[in-house]
Nucleic acid binder design. Structure first.
Length: 174
DNA sequence: GCACGGATTTCC
DNA sequence: GAAATCCGTGCG
């Protein structure tokens, strides 16, 4: 569950039901593809940090950094199931809109922070996880076909996109 | 310095 | 199917 407490102390939260992984310097779909510069610098830093960026000049996307310090990685939160003071969050930009997350949250340590963090609430069983190609990264060639999008089966809160679904196999993760 | 396009959403 | 709308990246 992703939790954000805004400037007025209002707590908003939702269970994460859809994510995408962006891993490694060679992932052509990742912002880290151009090296540890600019906004992607955070992806090269330590894990557990909020990476929030502006997309299409008007929408925000929230990521949590992953992997070891020096090796780039992040998980994009694409959808949440409303839990507290949230109406809808079926899409990366809508997640940020619903939780009032913007670039002011960029760089926040999700482990240490008391205003933006992730809680383990009701984990999704492996059997309910669906896997497919990432969305909106067709420009990335072969990397666009990697099955690095994960969502909760039959959840009405995942972003509405046509997607080839396979079941999740924990062994597939290297 | 400047042109180009995007990890999206919404409306025609 | 296309617009809305900034900023990082790439190239000069």
């Amino acid at each position: 569950m992703l939790v954000h407490i805004d400037h007025e102390g209002i707590r908003r939260a939702g269970c994460i039901v859809e994510t995408e992984a962006y891993v490694g310097p060679h992932d052509a779909a990742s912002h880290a593809r151009s090296g540890p510069r600019g906004r992607a610098t955070l992806m090269y830093g330590k894990a557990g940090v909020a990476y929030v960026y502006l997309i299409y000049g008007m929408h925000h996307c929230f990521n949590a950094t992953t992997e070891q310090d020096g090796y780039p990685g992040a998980v994009l939160v694409r959808a949440i199931e409303p839990v507290e003071n949230v109406e809808r969050g079926n899409g990366p930009a809508l997640v940020c809109q619903a939780l009032r997350i913007d670039r002011g949250c960029n760089g926040v340590d999700l482990v240490e922070s008391s205003r933006l963090f992730i809680e383990t609430a009701s984990p999704v069983a492996d059997a309910d996880v669906r896997v497919g190609p990432r969305v909106g990264v067709d420009y990335a060639g072969e990397w666009a076909t990697h099955p690095w999008r994960f969502w909760k089966a039959d959840s009405p809160h995942v972003s509405r996109r046509p997607g080839t679904a396979t079941t999740y196999d924990p062994a597939m993760l290297g």
